[in-house]
Design a protein around this nucleic acid. Structure first.
Length: 928
RNA sequence: GCUCAGAUGGUGGAACUGGUAGACACGCAGGACUUAAAAUCCUGUGACCUUAAAAGUCGUGCGGGUUCGAUUCCCGCUCUGAGUACCA
């Protein structure tokens, strides 16, 4: 029979599901391999052709690893809490659980028809109580923990309480809020229970605190920094403003250094590492206290160039700095207040966009330079950010361009501090070269020595010290939304307490509407009869989208466990994710949070590895490729009912209209289908070129409104899943972004048919021969065995597909139907095109379903050895001819042989060669 | 501005450690089969110049360098894409 992909694919998908072919063993003698795809959010639109790209790659890898004798865990599930379902619920009143369920079944149906080897027995959904029970449990562990910088790990809060009880805060080094109190053991003992809880909250790894947050009014919720892009929300693109609110936060900053160091141990794409490094934003410098003139206090600044301290000619505070009001003199009051009012009016966006204009106001106060004792003006300006460092900077105009502009604009002095600084009247010179001048105790020193000297001097005089600063802020954890995990906390006297562990999961209550209450409480405030022990209020915000996805790879290891998030045995066996494939958009969000929670769980001894993901691959984005038709306009600029082909459009005035890419084949418009697609053009005139209507092309985002969405269902219907899988890989390197173009899928389909034909005679009857394979057949086979193995190991899936085509072309030319050779071919190809291979595998007489666990053929290099090698011979670097020479011949003999050749002599034209280069097995080059 | 990635035929792309640039596929052209079309199969296909055939010249964004030899390594530049942006 001809290649009947529809029947074959349906049959084997059914077989795999029924027999649980891809169920991972819980324990095994085999080495483990964990292949994970990034958790999808099941959106209502279903899959387009770009989504499965990474899944196909990871599936090929999983299938390959099984053939190589590994026990493979390759699961799939859904990150099913999230905003879109809730927005839809607000519009329609439908419970988000319902729409989520529907979306998941669409997703599942689409995934199933591509033939993935997922172990569906391990499926998880973050919105299921049996799952979010453990998300809540992890939250409770974080609440019950503090970060001990002495031991450099998280510990249970009880070890902190013990320290307080024995010696108070003396000697405690913790990652904590800035406003922690100092006390001794007696004072601690004397504190009320509420006061103790308030104090402990400042140390917990998840804590409630008044913080400045990104408030998105349109979404009615706060957002984390990574969910805000350029002042707008990542989802929906709504404006975001700064607002002070009581908020749950995660003390991720405690892990800043470990998150940074861990990047050196993982195999991630360099851009992802770089983005995480930038996000963490480590800078090494010093904090310096500038005493305020006629005032008991001081201004603390952070600087990475403490060596430039003698060049300080002013100090700048952020307009929001807490000391601004107090330090503004009566004469300057008006100017300062005007300036603050003016800054407030500017949105965050304007402030970022306008980096050219220099602005600021003098407070009228002075501070004293601690090293020189010099009097320095204190200013405010909005280029200083309240949220970074101490919200104050020292202005060194000679070394910093921004300070230089500020000083020039306001007529402040510019002091040269290094003898090598040049052109200070034109711009700042940030050099570290040369020796210091005008610089008191560091005069004559170089950069390194100056830094050390000053740091020591500052520390001795208690004016400051060397300090490391991180840009990364703690992550806001609460969302004022409905469709998320409830936070397992209740309030007594305004203080948060955890519910009891045996009360988990804290179920999401039913509400009448998915909107905030009249008093502005989050939607959970609408729940009736929802309180802890009938009297205490529950926390009303829910967890953010990233909560459930920050630990899910552990749940896959043991997804049904009711007494732990995963058993210790499962974690001991599976350890970590060996290969993680997903989009680059999660570089700073999901991947940082997951690494953070993983490190935390490791500190508490629940997991084994410091890093959760050994190797990460970002698959490229598939862009849309839009097609256009061109409607002619008349002299008055009015649209006509005439459409002109792309090549002739410059002869007319036209408007471009999107046309559905599914009715365009190689840029040729199917006019009949077009008339049906746009009835208003049923009677349109078409100006053709060579009898065809050629469409224009542009690369855009794939979206419904641009009519460029290609649905995998359609391609599977026409060509089958095996063709789709191979074609997606054939498009190009996995990591490269590229526009989708269905042109060319025919080639892959033809290849599979040709492969099928190798096993069949002209009458389409299955027929293979049992004789010993020929040398040529073995050569073709072993070439592909090696090539596919090498390609998969370096994630170069596109080149494998080409090589398969070459192998099948070779075997077709050899008229091979050798059973031994073809059976090995089936195994090698099965990772890419599993359905057709399962079918041929059983036709060859093997037990159904055993292909997935067959052994990958062993490569034997002997079959590739050639007796004769065709040497390209070049003269002065230009290839002139090929000479067939025995492969055993040594360089000297080859040289003699080549020079004796008649044709070579012709090129030498009587001259004697200056030099002859012979690379054995490669090339001969003659220099004349 | 900064950081990173990239630029190869009409198109997607290949060339893995510096060794025959353009594999494989699409498209296109011609042919076979067919009453015809579709499907299938065969042949050709970087550009230029010329031809009966052969040969020749140029050619991996641009300019230079290293080398017997560069798509590959080095320096400078242009363009495209992504990320990031007053971070002290």
């Amino acid at each position: 029979m001809d290649y009947q992909f529809k029947e074959i694919e349906k049959k084997w998908q059914g077989f795999w599901a029924e027999n649980q072919t891809f169920k991972a063993e819980q324990t095994s003698e085999k080495p483990k391999f964990y292949v994970l795809d990034m958790f999808p959010y099941p959106s209502g639109a279903g899959l387009h052709v770009g989504h499965p790209l990474g899944y196909i790659a990871s599936d090929i890898f999983s299938r390959y690893k099984r053939l190589k004798g590994f026990n493979v865990l390759h699961p799939m599930g859904y990150d099913s809490f999230g905003l879109p379902a809730e927005q839809y619920a607000i519009q329609t009143g439908q419970h988000p659980a319902l729409t989520t369920e529907q979306n998941i079944s669409t997703y599942r149906r689409q995934l199933d028809q591509i033939g993935f080897s997922f172990d569906w027995s391990k499926e998880v959904r973050t919105s299921e109580p049996s799952y979010y029970k453990w998300t809540q449990w992890i939250f409770m562990q974080l609440f019950d923990a503090w970060y001990n910088q002495e031991t450099d790990r998280a510990e249970n809060i009880s070890t902190l309480v013990e320290k307080f009880e024995t010696s108070g805060t003396a000697g405690i080094k913790a990652a904590a809020d800035e406003d922690v109190l100092s006390f001794d053991a007696t004072e601690w003992a004397a504190m009320s229970a509420e006061a103790k809880q308030t104090e402990l909250l400042k140390y917990r790894l998840t804590y409630l605190r008044e913080s400045t947050v990104n408030w998105c009014a349109a979404l009615g919720t706060v957002l984390a920094n990574d969910e805000v892009i350029g002042g707008y929300s990542e989802r929906g693109g709504h404006p975001v403003e700064q607002k002070k609110m009581m908020q749950w936060s995660m003390r991720i900053s405690a892990y800043a250094e470990r998150l940074l160091q861990g990047l050196n141990t993982v195999d991630f794409p360099e851009p992802v590492k770089e983005m995480q490094r930038n996000w963490i934003g480590k800078s090494v410098g010093a904090s310096v206290k500038f005493p305020i003139e006629n005032h008991a206090g001081h201004i603390e600044v952070f600087t990475t160039r403490v060596d430039t301290i003698y060049g300080v000619s002013f100090l700048v505070l952020a307009p929001e700095h807490e000391l601004v009001a107090e330090l503004t003199t009566p004469e300057q009051k008006e100017a300062v207040e005007n300036y603050i009012a003016q800054t407030r009016k500017k949105s965050e966006l304007d402030r970022m966009a306008d980096t050219k204009t220099v602005s600021g106001a003098f407070t009228g106060s002075y501070v004293l330079n601690p090293v020189s004792g010099e009097r320095v003006q204190l200013w405010i300006a909005d280029y200083v950010l309240a949220g970074y460092g101490t919200g104050a900077v020292m202005g060194v105009p000679s070394g910093d361009q921004r300070d230089w502009l500020f000083a020039t604009h306001f007529g402040l002095p510019i002091v040269q501090i290094l003898d090598q600084q040049a052109d200070l009247d034109k711009q700042a010179d940030p050099t570290k070269e040369g020796q210091y001048i005008n610089s008191g105790i560091i005069n004559g020193m170089g950069y390194k020595e100056a830094i050390e000297t000053l740091n020591k001097w500052l520390e001795v005089g208690k004016f400051g010290k060397a300090k490391i600063n991180y840009r990364m802020r703690d992550a806001i954890f609460g969302r004022q939304r409905y469709w998320g995990e409830p936070i397992p906390v209740y309030f007594k006297e305004g203080i948060p307490y955890l519910i009891k562990e045996e009360e988990l999961p804290l179920l999401l209550p039913e509400v009448d509407k998915y909107l905030p209450t009249e008093t502005g409480e989050p939607p959970l405030g609408r729940a009736t009869n929802w309180s802890y022990e009938q009297q205490y209020e529950y926390e009303l915000s829910t967890m953010p989208g990233w909560a459930g996805s920050s630990w899910y790879w552990y749940r896959y290891m043991d997804s049904k466990n009711e007494s732990a998030f995963a058993s210790a045995e499962a974690i001991e066996y599976w350890q970590d994710v060996d290969l993680y494939i997903g989009g680059a958009e999660h570089a700073t969000g999901h991947l940082l949070y997951s690494r953070f929670w993983n490190k935390f769980l490791k500190d508490l001894g629940y997991v084994k590895q410091e890093e959760p993901f050994k190797k990460l691959i970002n698959q490229g984005m598939i862009q849309g490729r839009s097609n256009f038709v061109y409607r002619v306009m008349d002299e008055n600029g009015k649209s006509t009912n005439t459409l002109v082909s792309h090549g002739l459009k410059n002869d007319y005035k036209t408007t471009a209209l999107h046309v559905d890419v599914n009715i365009v084949d190689n840029e040729v418009l199917n006019i009949e289908k077009f008339k049906a697609f746009r009835p208003e053009f049923a009677n349109a005139e078409f100006i053709l070129e060579n009898g065809k209507y050629i469409c224009g092309v542009e690369v855009e985002k794939m979206s419904k409104s641009k009519f460029n969405v290609v649905n995998p269902d359609v391609l599977i219907e026409n060509y089958g899943a095996d063709t789709l899988r191979m074609y997606e890989m054939f498009l190009g390197p996995l990591e490269q972004s590229k526009p989708w173009n269905t042109n060319g899928i025919e080639g892959v389909f033809k290849f599979l048919r040709k492969f099928w034909r190798l096993f069949h005679n002209d009458a389409w009857a299955f027929q293979v021969s049992d004789v010993e394979p020929t040398k040529a057949e073995l050569k073709a086979l072993h070439k592909i065995i090696k090539k596919v193995q090498d390609d998969i190991e370096r994630f170069s899936f596109n080149t494998s597909v080409s090589s398969f085509m070459i192998a099948v072309n070779e075997l077709t030319d050899l008229k091979s139907n050798n059973k031994q050779v073809l059976q090995d071919m089936v195994i090698v190809l099965s990772a890419y095109a599993p359905h057709i291979c399962e079918e041929l595998w059983t036709l060859l007489g093997n037990e159904p379903g055993t292909l997935s666990y067959a052994a990958y053929p062993v490569f034997n290099p002997e079959y590739l050895v050639e007796d004769e090698i065709s040497y390209p011979v070049s003269v002065n670097g230009k290839t002139r001819m090929n000479l067939s020479i025995s492969s055993t011949m040594e360089a000297q003999e080859i040289e003699a042989l080549v020079l004796a050749n008649e044709q070579v002599q012709k090129y030498l034209d009587g001259k004697s060669p200056k030099k002859v280069i012979v690379v054995k097995g490669r090339i001969v080059n003659i220099v004349v």
